[in-house]
Amino acid sequence: MSSEKMLARIGGLLRQAESTTNPHEAQAFMEAAQRLATATSIDLAVARSHTSQRERRATPVQRSIRIGETGKKGLRTYVHLFVSIAAANDVQCDVAHNSTQVFAYGFDTDIDACEALYSSLLLQMVRASDAFIRSGAHRPVAGVTARLNFQLAFAARIGERLATAKREAEADAIRADAIRADTVRADLAGAAPEPTGTALVLRDKQIELSDFYQQTSQARGTWRGSKATVAPSAKARRAGDRAGREARLGPSPELPAGRRQLA
């Protein structure tokens, strides 16, 4: 599936999610979007593995994602959200020292999926944290501290949900691959045809990405924004985690132009 088709289908899931008031349906649509992104990534990885070296084949790229302007508060929680999404979509990231940019390393379609998910989930995270602060439920903790705790918990929960959806999609693909291989062997009366090897393809993709990152990245350290010291607020963390569990993907007209500044 091409990047454009993938984004169009994800956009359809976003519209379906926006039209439902059922939180269980909303969660299903979000997980379906991640599973679609994972399935597309797997399909393309398999296709790449069968492409002749003489043919033009897709290779990893590095893309700069603008997170926000210098001095804007809360940028590290925005970065934490993007990095959490990226981890579930085979994209490695470097982060500018002031958290204004993320440098994403991966295949184009995987980075596109990250931007699509991020553009929707960022709006939800900000709106949910604003509503929490306006409610006064964070008191007596300062609003700034509560917001950081809320958004960090939201991003962490989103990362866990997307990672689960990715693992399930990969497991489904590997099981389907095994069934196809068994069917072919049976048809050939015990012969041993060359399997498509989805698991092997995924491993090779990770190696290719790792090599590309090591050769391309100029990072001089490790981003620790999400681990930086933040005064704890148990109430804000619980609220952020709950919002992350209930998050749904809303409409995102920016999908076809997702490379512009997202926040």
Rank of each mutant, 00 (worst) to 15 (best):
R245V: 02
A191K: 13
R224N: 13
K205S: 04
R237A: 12
T216F: 01
V201I: 07
A199E: 09
G244R: 01
L202K: 03
L209P: 02
R248S: 12
A231M: 13
A247F: 05
P193E: 05
A243H: 01
A191E: 11
Q215M: 04
P232V: 07
Q218I: 14
R242G: 06
T216N: 05
G250P: 08
T216W: 02
Q206S: 11
T222I: 11
K235F: 00
E246F: 03
A228W: 07
G240A: 06
R224W: 02
A192W: 09
S233C: 14
G197A: 07
L200W: 06
P193M: 02
L249F: 04
L188N: 06
A239R: 01
R180L: 12
D182E: 11
K227A: 14
G190E: 03
L209Y: 00
R242N: 15
A181S: 13
A236S: 05
I207E: 09
K235H: 09
D187N: 12
G225M: 06
A234D: 12
P195G: 01
R180K: 10
P193K: 03
Q206F: 04
Q214G: 09
G225I: 02
L200A: 14
P251H: 11
S233K: 03
A231E: 10
V230C: 05
S226Q: 15
P193R: 01
E208S: 01
R203D: 11
G221W: 07
E208D: 04
P195E: 04
A189E: 14
V184G: 01
K227L: 15
A189Y: 12
Q206W: 00
A181H: 14
G240Y: 02
L200P: 07
E194M: 03
E246Y: 03
S226L: 08
I207L: 01
A186V: 15
A231V: 14
D187A: 15
Q215C: 14
L202A: 01
D204C: 04
D211K: 09
T216H: 03
S210D: 10
R185M: 10
R180H: 13
R203V: 07
A234M: 01
R203P: 00
A239C: 10
E194A: 10
S233M: 03
S233T: 08
R185E: 15
Q215D: 14
W223T: 08
